[in-house]
């Protein structure tokens, strides 16, 4: 993020600089996905002939990550509420969920949603959405801890001031507690999101045609592990770099007290 901020005029406000930085990073990500196929096409074999596949795999990876990341945010928020609830069964449920998710491998969770869930419930999800469900539930458990810590970090006096002004509990949460706790939770949430992008590679195990799956296919048909895996890794690296760019800019946007 520092790279983008450094070239922006110093006279701009912090909000403006970081808003522009977010836009630049998001735009950069879109452009990257757009030109990836063309760039890879000029590479030597076996990458050149698989350029289209790599590009579409990278796109599926981003879709998988963004979708399960957003659902995981909602799941994490609900689980954090559960953990902080005064109603004991809600606490038990949230604690049980977090305990199970954090104590079992993600691969088992993905297999469970894809293979075992249809035997228990009358729903059969395609591979992509099975992966979304498993990844969202997984990242949600980690998000819950981050969000809970953020909510607990909000000073009690802030809530008292809001309530004494006549704001309802819901307004107090929306206008005071949530924005303040979000700022505290953001670095952890971003870490979780970057992990999620990398973990989404496990979706290849149930046949989702994302980046890792493409890598596997090209490697096994070309018998050339080094160029294929290096290409796969570099694409992941560029994607995670864009993610940290965006999150760094959001952190600055919210950094009212100018710590950075």
């Amino acid at each position: 993020m520092k790279a983008t901020l450094a070239i922006l005029p110093r006279s701009w406000s912090r909000e403006r600089r970081s808003a522009v930085a977010i836009a630049v990073a998001v735009f950069g990500l879109v452009v990257f996905l757009w030109v990836l196929a063309q760039v890879l096409a000029v590479m030597p074999e076996p990458i050149g002939s698989a350029a289209e596949q790599f590009a579409s795999g990278a796109q599926i990876t981003v879709e998988l990550t963004v979708l399960s990341g957003l659902v995981g945010l909602v799941v994490g928020l609900l689980a954090a509420f559960g953990k902080l609830s005064k109603f004991p069964p809600a606490r038990w449920l949230a604690n049980f969920y977090i305990w199970v998710i954090r104590g079992t491998p993600l691969l088992v969770q993905i297999y469970f949603v894809f293979f075992a869930l249809p035997d228990i419930l009358p729903i059969e999800l395609p591979d992509f959405y099975s992966a979304v469900v498993a990844l969202a539930l997984n990242v949600g458990a980690y998000n819950a801890e981050a969000i809970r810590a953020g909510i607990l970090a909000v000073h009690r006096g802030q809530v008292e001031a809001a309530r004494s002004l006549g704001l309802s509990p819901l307004q107090t949460f929306r206008d005071i507690v949530f924005p303040q706790s979000f700022r505290v939770a953001l670095p952890s949430l971003v870490n979780n999101f970057v992990s999620l992008l990398k973990d989404s590679s496990l979706a290849s195990a149930i046949g989702v045609v994302e980046l890792m799956n493409i890598g596997n296919r090209v490697r096994s048909s070309s018998y050339q592990a080094v160029p294929v895996l290096v290409t796969t890794a570099v694409i992941y690296l560029v994607l995670t770099s864009f993610m940290t760019q965006v999150s760094g800019a959001i952190e600055r946007q919210l950094d009212i007290e100018n710590h950075k």
């Binding site: 006096g157 802030q158 008292e160 001031a161 004494s164 005071i176 924005p179 700022r183 009212i256 007290e257």
Partner: peptide, 14 residues
């Protein structure tokens, strides 16, 4: 109807 002023101000920091 009742306003309150606190020892530690409690202005909304964000």
């Amino acid at each position: 109807e009742v306003g309150m002023v606190f020892q530690s101000f409690n202005l909304f920091s964000h």
